[in-house]
Simulated scan of single mutants.
Amino acid sequence: MKRLIAPILSLFLLGCGDDPLPKPKGYLRLEYPKAIYKKTVVPLPFTFEKNTLSAPIPNVKTSGKTKGVDVKYPSLKATIYLTYKEVRDNNLDSLLRDAQNLTQKHTIKADEISYNPYENHEHKVYGMFYEIGGDAASQSQFYVTDSINHFLSGSLYFYAKPNYDSIYPASEYLKKDIKRLMESVRWEE
């Protein structure tokens, strides 16, 4: 009988306590620093503003008539690839078609592609911003041009398998940076 009383007594003492309460669901909360933009001068015929969260821009990459710079965000594991081409010999239609085709290549994985035209008549900057929803390789793309001499295109890529739910917060943060970059482009005459 003594053997039976000790376990029952210990269960009684351990079993008494507060009723268990369900814990609330936890959600991932990512906070990024407030963007601070500074004018960036690169050895190309344009300037733009970039977020100070991004890394310094390394040397310009050149391939034939194409030149480019990478705006890297190491903490977000992302890069905005900028490609510059001169408009010459009536090639503007070809440059526009290439930029639009690059965006359309993502339709295989994209849930949607929305676009927003951009026009700044004062500084002669005209272009298009594309937002790509879904598990596409690039979440945002754009191009700007003065329609006479300059053409700049850009694409955002993450160093990770495209999982829209996972990269959405970073994508939204960088979307604002891309729009600021577009709006701040100033061509050199």
Rank of each mutant, 00 (worst) to 15 (best):
M1D: 10
K2F: 12
L4C: 04
I5N: 01
P7Q: 02
I8T: 10
L9S: 04
L11W: 00
L13G: 01
L13F: 03
L14K: 02
C16R: 08
P22E: 09
P22Q: 08
P24E: 09
K25N: 13
Y27K: 13
L28K: 15
L30C: 09
A35Q: 13
I36N: 10
I36A: 11
Y37G: 05
T40R: 10
V41I: 14
V42N: 07
P43Y: 08
P43G: 09
F46K: 03
T47V: 12
E49D: 15
K50Y: 04
T52R: 09
P56W: 08
I57S: 04
I57F: 06
P58S: 10
P58H: 06
V60M: 11
V60H: 06
V60D: 08
K61G: 11
T62S: 12
S63N: 15
S63M: 14
S63T: 13
G64L: 03
T66M: 12
K67P: 06
V69T: 04
D70K: 12
V71H: 04
Y73H: 05
S75E: 13
L76W: 01
L76S: 00
L76V: 01
K77W: 03
T79A: 02
T79Y: 00
T79H: 00
T83F: 10
Y84L: 05
K85T: 10
E86R: 11
V87L: 08
R88D: 11
R88Q: 13
R88G: 10
L92V: 07
L95H: 07
L95P: 07
L96G: 07
R97E: 13
R97K: 15
R97P: 03
D98G: 09
A99L: 01
A99Q: 02
K105G: 06
K105Y: 13
I108Q: 14
A110F: 09
S114K: 15
Y115Q: 15
N116M: 10
N116C: 04
P117D: 11
Y118I: 02
N120D: 15
H121R: 11
H123G: 00
H123I: 05
Y126E: 07
G127V: 05
F129G: 04
F129P: 04
G133L: 12
D135H: 05
Q139I: 07
S140K: 14
F142T: 05
F142H: 05
T145F: 02
T145H: 01
S147T: 15
S147P: 05
I148W: 09
H150T: 07
F151S: 10
L152D: 06
L152V: 13
L152N: 08
S155F: 02
L156C: 06
F158H: 02
K161V: 02
K161R: 09
P162Y: 02
D165P: 06
S166K: 14
I167G: 01
I167T: 07
P169M: 11
P169T: 11
S171G: 09
S171M: 06
Y173D: 00
L174G: 01
K175D: 10
K175E: 12
K176V: 08
L181C: 09
M182C: 00
E183L: 00
E183A: 04
V185W: 07
R186E: 13
R186S: 14
R186V: 15
R186H: 13
W187C: 02
E188W: 05
E188Q: 15
E189L: 14
